[in-house]
């Protein structure tokens, strides 16, 4: 599964679980404005992705490092792609 597929699947689950319609998900979509994701939804997405991709880049990152802006689906894709390439960030 590519990161984009996994992210799209996770977002669809979040929307479905919270009783919303899961529309088509495209990389350029804004997480908040287009998909309606709030911080709880994002937190759930991250937990689901840890299960499907085996990484949690947000937990692995040192607390002092500035968190990259996450505005679009493709922001998430780049964060997860980078995390998957860095073996140290894999959760045990």
């Amino acid at each position: 599964m590519t990161p984009l597929d996994a992210i799209a699947a996770a977002i669809r689950t979040v929307l479905h679980d919270t009783g919303r319609d899961a529309a088509a998900i495209a990389p350029e979509m804004l997480l908040a404005a287009d998909l309606g994701l709030d911080s709880l939804d994002l937190a759930q997405t991250i937990v689901l992705l840890e299960r499907s991709l085996g990484v949690d880049p947000f937990r692995a990152a040192p607390a002092v490092a500035p968190r990259p802006a996450i505005r679009t689906v493709s922001d998430l894709v780049s964060i997860y792609s980078a995390a998957i390439d860095s073996p140290r960030s894999h959760t045990p």
């Binding site: 911080s39 709880l40 994002l42 937190a43 759930q44 991250i46 937990v47 949690d56 947000f58 937990r59």
Partner: peptide, 12 residues
């Protein structure tokens, strides 16, 4: 509670 970097914890 599940630890979350975004919300502190999440209900699981």
């Amino acid at each position: 509670g599940l630890p979350s970097a975004i919300t502190g914890e999440l209900v699981a």
